[in-house]
Nucleic acid binder design. Structure first.
Lengths: 137, 137
DNA sequence: ACAAGTACTTTGCATTACAAGGTAATCGTT
DNA sequence: AACGATTACCTTGTAATGCAAAGTACTTGT
């Protein structure tokens, strides 16, 4: 289990919201979306983005038009729809709830500090515990 | 695409960290871990937790001992290891980075406010845009 | 023409949460 | 002591989804 994998797993759940947020900012096309997300440290690959945009489009959360660029092939410029903007609002609210829940978990006593040398070794040398509330006789 | 699914996706990436945080707090056994997480609004099912604990154990991040309860069958009491505590520290740091990155994305202009009636319809009625920086030549 | 660059698309794989069902130990009641 | 209820642990199959890798197509420059 490596840290990189864990970080990737954490990112997975928010990519959809972040793409929607970037598209909500203004019309863009996929390579630009990727650049933007990378610029805030949220790497995303082509093979992830294109299918995601297809999903968002078929759910009516974004729409696109073909536009000719100054050079190269035509681009799909995406914009958010009204439904998309409403959904993004809900996603952002859920995100804030999640952040609050996770922070509450991380703030639990003993999960706070890094291991300091000289601490009493906490590993399974705990005396047999008194049950508190859940064992109704 | 429903909101519930999106919320579940967001949770997925952090469950491992949260379980580790709960176990870091003090020795516990699986049903209690589930209760704790539910109490902070992070639902997790048995079929998710047990295989996850197996992974954490085989990676040396947690350890367990069998203990007899006051009633019912014996329980596996889990505690975090030193390695686990170090890893939890890294996970928490990555989590904070992610929160910061996502918040930066959500703060992009136009993804902030909810749709207000009377706004100019923003959907793809934007005039053909001047490219800014990325079209070199 | 042809190569290079850019953009869009698709396929197969790995990870992982979960629903659903299964095994086993203990307890209370008869 | 037998049996159902409770509690705890475990396993299997499914679905979602990020990604690597490879493919298609349009445009530009030589």
């Amino acid at each position: 289990m490596d840290l990189e994998n864990a970080k990737a797993q954490m990112r997975k759940g928010v990519l959809e919201m972040c793409v929607l947020a970037v598209v909500a900012e203004r019309e863009t096309y996929p390579p630009e979306i990727i650049e933007r997300l990378e610029s805030v440290n949220l790497p995303m690959k082509e093979g992830t983005l294109y299918p995601l945009l297809v999903r968002l489009k078929s759910d009516g959360l974004v729409d696109y038009v073909w536009r000719e660029g100054i050079k190269g092939p035509p681009r799909k410029y995406f914009a958010i729809t009204e439904d998309g903007r409403a959904f993004l609002g809900e996603l952002a609210a859920s995100w804030r709830e999640l952040v609050s829940a996770v922070d509450r978990t991380l703030a639990l006593p003993s999960s706070r500090q890094a291991p300091s040398p000289g601490d009493p070794p906490p590993l399974l040398h705990i005396e047999p515990q008194q049950p508190f509330d859940d064992e109704r006789s």
